[in-house]
Design a protein around this nucleic acid. Structure first.
Lengths: 233, 233
DNA sequence: CGTTAAGTTGATAGGTTTCAACATACGTGG
DNA sequence: CCACGTATGTTGAAACCTATCAACTTAACG
């Protein structure tokens, strides 16, 4: 029995394109790996040597300027695909934000396997097109939104993406959502293109206005979803 | 003889994955269309009804906030692919910046054709992965770079992408490149997440420092490539 | 040649960053 | 289990960069 049968993302990751026999072949060239928070799987600028599926946890994709400024260019969750198949160098590092488990393949092996399995490539294409859509939407935020709009948009996206990921709890209260963020304040700043101080100020402002509550540093309760949506611009 | 045989992007667009017979079948479901500057092919928010290949010209992909701020999220050139295959709604409008010629397909027809031709889907996947890389690199610019760094980066990218596109001329001078921009000042501002005034000021500053020359509003000559690269951060 | 759109320049205001001090949470070892 | 030291986050004041508003200039087109 291939270990994929037990995989929790079996039906959501690109692997869902494969039947049992194909899956066994894919499993043969992959291996699972755990990553601790802060640990990197891929470094910016190195040529693409491996790709992976996220099984559990949250990871960031980030680039840096020469003088050390950082921009998080993507965040990946369970069932998402990591890495750059089909040549080229990796434009961004991949680092775990939480304890994470990934299913790793050598890029060469994966490339060869993918080219022989069009259904897998199709899943990967759909996933990549979706990721491109999401990334472009984020550009509007980075280029045109104010700090308050940025944080509100961020919290709304978090509330949406973390539901059912084990990182959030839905209270029975209508319009109330409690989310445990997988990000530090600095990381939120790096996602939004702001400084940590500005992020902090916006958090306390939203709290003072009764739109959110902050039970702890990593937890946010959305008290007034409509107001938060209005803030998002 | 299929009209694709005469197509100038035949060997660069995703069509290059197809043999003569397949190409004829693809040609049967597509048609060419010309677009005037400022005219749109796709509107933001509508569900995806068509896709296309760019044959000639330059087009922008853009999104707007409710209150009218615009962000250009991508720029496409000859041989690039436009649109969102495999369902979903279009997250951004597509508008011609110059006179443009495109090869248009109904999305439904294209989807069906693509699913039967894995080689075509593979080309599309490679193109989409490349576009995602480019888009993520642009996020660093939007989120973390200053106005001067933004404009310098923009000019360098233009110098690179417009070479051999009929929009630029290489003088024999080493390190000197003359580029005819397909953008107005406002459009440059919308690419960089700035205002038109800030863009204008940065242009004149670079000119006063002898790094570039501005023969006309649409033309830029890069006089000192090294200095411009340094400005780009 | 006049009209209009596009771009430039200047003065001012505003938002975000920067620098600094302080507060709070976290982990480790006594 | 508490104390301490460190990392993380918050708050304040000032500086800086970019946006805004307004006037002016230049180029494009009939």
């Amino acid at each position: 029995m291939s270990s994929c049968d037990l995989c929790v993302v079996r039906n959501r990751a690109i692997c869902s394109a494969l039947d049992a026999k194909e899956l066994e072949a894919l499993n043969a060239i992959g291996r699972t790996r755990t990553i601790a928070p802060g640990e990197s799987l891929i470094w910016e600028g190195e040529d693409s040597v491996l790709v992976a599926n996220v099984i559990d946890g949250v990871l960031k994709l980030s680039t840096n300027t020469e003088d050390g400024r950082e921009q998080i260019v993507g965040v990946v969750y369970p069932s998402d695909f990591i890495g750059r198949p089909f040549g080229g160098t990796t434009g961004h590092g991949v680092t775990a934000l939480t304890d994470a488990k990934v299913c790793v393949f050598s890029r060469r092996d994966f490339d060869a396997f993918a080219r022989e399995h069009p259904a897998l490539e199709h899943k990967l294409l759909e996933r990549t097109l979706g990721e491109l859509d999401r990334t472009r939407r984020w550009m509007l935020l980075l280029g045109r939104k104010s700090a308050s709009e940025k944080l509100a948009s961020f919290l709304l996206e978090m509330a949406e993406r973390l539901v059912g990921q084990g990182c959030s709890f839905d209270f029975e209260m209508p319009n109330q959502k409690r989310v445990t963020l997988p990000f530090s304040r600095q990381q939120i700043a790096d996602v939004l293109g702001l400084t940590i101080e500005t992020v902090s100020r916006q958090f306390t402002r939203l709290k003072n206005e009764g739109i959110i509550d902050l039970p702890s540093r990593r937890d946010v309760t959305i008290l007034d979803l409509a107001a938060l949506t209005a803030e998002a611009g």
